[in-house]
């Protein structure tokens, strides 16, 4: 009886631990950091520390769900950004340029798809290759890595909308992040495609033996990952009105971190969109809170590292408890 109660308690902890951890971190910084709880600061956390990373991390969640990883999400961001800026500079309408940007990002996914689903290279190595090739391509396109600026006079108002605009008072980046999160959750957990992606990550040979065209699903999945990441390229470019080669890689490690935080806390150890989103929030709140606590900027990474260690420890304890039950 007592053991049954204990085990149900620890299972419960697994499910809600992420929310609990987030609350704890929140409470900690609310007392430590002046101004942390102010509306302006929280909004800035959402826009600056959350929205863009959330989109990249959600993209990563698709790759991890299929049992892979995508180290080239930054490359997709960069290609989208480059295509977007170039098309606007060439005088194309902003909407068309944005579509072109998405296509530019998707191209990276097509390249990955050929390597992974076509040739059969492992996702880690294939996307690592893409990351390097993508870096070179960008240097070649920009005379060795020079940023491509939009002349301040020549920036159409519509161009700035993605990064600076608001709809009904809500910043557009946040709105886009919400849309991507909702859409991704729907696709991953409520559609045939999502179910097959998940099954592929769990036991690929069963998917094949079930008469499902595994390589098609894998290919589509990697194109989807890059296309989602490309959205970030558009927002980023619109915010700073410049394309800086290889700047997208800044999101890579945090996106992986957030995805695995979400996976660790899932009772079944499955990658999942809500978990990823909570992981991003946790990372964002810790980064912002540490900053406001007046801690030296260079210590922030230590904070993130500690966070990930504690998540792993809790996840490990959870799984041990579950195994004993």
């Amino acid at each position: 009886m007592a053991t049954a109660f204990l085990s149900s308690l620890t299972r419960g902890i697994g499910r809600y631990a992420l929310v609990a951890a987030l609350t704890a971190v929140f409470a900690l910084f609310a007392t430590l950091a002046p101004g942390f709880l102010s509306g302006a600061n929280l909004l800035s956390v959402l826009v600056n520390n959350f929205a863009l990373l959330a989109i990249v991390a959600v993209a990563m969640t698709f790759a991890v769900s299929a049992g892979g990883i995508d180290l080239s999400v930054g490359t997709a961001i960069d290609f989208a950004s480059f295509a977007f800026v170039s098309l606007v500079l060439a005088g194309q309408p902003v909407a068309l340029a944005a579509l072109g940007g998405l296509a530019g990002g998707a191209l990276v996914g097509v390249f990955n798809a050929v390597l992974i689903a076509g040739i059969g290279i492992s996702p880690f190595l294939a996307t690592l290759g893409t990351l390097f090739v993508g870096r070179s391509v960008q240097q070649l396109l920009t005379n060795g890595g020079n940023p491509v600026y939009l002349p301040p006079a020549g920036v159409p108002e519509a161009f700035r909308f993605l990064g600076h605009g608001t709809v009904a008072g809500i910043p557009v980046p946040l709105l886009l992040a919400a849309l991507v999160i909702a859409g991704a959750w729907l696709v991953l957990s409520q559609t045939r495609f999502g179910r097959v992606v998940l099954a592929t990550g769990i036991q690929a040979s069963v998917v094949r033996y079930s008469g499902i065209r595994l390589s098609r699903v894998t290919a589509a999945n990697y194109v989807l990952v890059s296309t989602i990441a490309a959205v970030v390229g558009l927002i980023l470019t619109s915010t700073v009105t410049v394309y800086i080669p290889s700047s997208g890689n800044a999101f890579l490690l945090n996106a992986i971190g957030a995805t695995f935080i979400g996976t660790t806390f899932d009772p079944r150890g499955r990658p999942n969109v809500p978990g990823t989103v909570l992981g991003v929030l946790l990372l964002g709140v810790v980064a912002n809170g540490l900053l406001l606590s007046g801690l030296n900027f260079y210590w922030q990474q230590v904070g993130t590292g500690l966070l990930i260690f504690s998540v792993l420890a809790i996840g490990f304890a959870n799984r041990k408890a579950a195994a004993r039950a």
Binding site: R195, I202, Q203, G211
Partner: peptide, 28 residues
């Protein structure tokens, strides 16, 4: 255990894996 059933999917997820088209109109 390698090719017939996915050990870490549920009974439901395994049962419908080869026939998901029957259970989804866009959404499952």
């Amino acid at each position: 255990r390698r090719d017939g059933v996915a050990l870490d999917l549920s009974v439901t997820e395994n049962t419908t894996l080869a026939s998901l088209d029957r259970f989804s109109r866009g959404l499952i």
